[in-house]
Write a protein that binds this DNA or RNA. Structure first.
Lengths: 159, 159
DNA sequence: GTTTAAACCGAGTATTTAAGTTGGTATTTG
DNA sequence: CAAATACCAACTTAAATACTCGGTTTAAAC
């Protein structure tokens, strides 16, 4: 699993599309403006998303993009997989080269973890995220606790 | 949250360290050999890990690395945060620019998701991962390496 | 006390990826 | 037709990744 800024752009754009959707198609120009992502880069991302049927484009004036299917049926993993290549990490692919065992075991563990992350992200869909998250915002001011939360939580499970 | 190959290398190396640990320190040369990661790159990663107290180095011949604290108290998020910079995605940081609301709402949603991913990865520690993951593989594990593993995961009857 | 195995350190580099740019073509609306 | 939009491909820049090189400590072993 890979979660880069590219994936973030894609998720952000899809969230934007979800929020604005319903009133007809949303143009990339709008998303570009709203989210501060360059239009051409969005085009590239949406080419990937369209390839995986996550969005549907409508050409011509008044055109734009719709979600490819209901927001309930689009998971975060779907989005990230569409734009971020899923690179296989294990080099032993299968059981060749696995003569020494230890290497392969570690690979297995990584795969296990990777699957869990994937399953987790698969369990979150756009609709849920919007519903849950939407409760919280009021005028955009969020407490700055997210920084501390994230920055230096030395021991995580100790407490 | 960011989950790149760099983080994967770090997690893989830490898993290796967990698996081999107990018999004294593990050298980077061994990890390099076992996992196929260049020694100098490992040094860089371990400089980060050491900075966050996740590992403890012992110099001189017979030296190497120990886990900085028990495997139960090291989460995957700890490892990834140590090596991957946590870049703040929102550009509105605070309340400036957030006049139009929509942009900021999407940012909030992203933050929400990001926190969830972080919490999820915080909930998985090295010890658990080794215990759970060990059950699955068969054929990749070698007799002579199995001893401490078998001890820690109970039985090897899966095969 | 010399040698040696290791951690530690910092600068440099090649490759890849991300992100944006440019300059289009294809479709559809009006 | 003109305009707005998706669509497309090649190029460019900037940054991150992954690695290299050449060291310096430190401490154990001889």
């Amino acid at each position: 699993m890979r979660l880069s800024t590219k994936g973030r752009y894609a998720v952000t754009a899809m969230l934007d599309l979800t929020l604005q959707g319903g009133d007809g198609p949303v143009t990339l120009a709008e998303i570009s403006e709203t989210q501060g992502i360059s239009l051409s880069y969005l085009e590239q991302l949406f080419a990937c998303l369209r390839g995986k049927q996550l969005v549907r484009g409508v050409r011509g004036p008044g055109g734009g993009y719709y979600l490819g299917r209901p927001a309930e049926e689009i998971s975060i993993a779907d989005i990230i997989c569409a734009v971020d290549e899923w690179v296989e990490f294990t080099r032993c692919g299968g059981k060749r080269d696995c003569k020494d065992g230890k290497r392969c075991l570690t690979h297995n563990l990584w795969d296990e973890l990777s699957s869990e992350i994937f399953n987790f992200l698969s369990s979150i869909n756009l609709a849920e995220l919007v519903e849950r998250g939407g409760l919280k915002e009021e005028g955009c001011i969020r407490e700055d606790n997210k920084d501390d939360l994230v920055a230096s939580r030395g021991t995580t499970r100790a407490a």
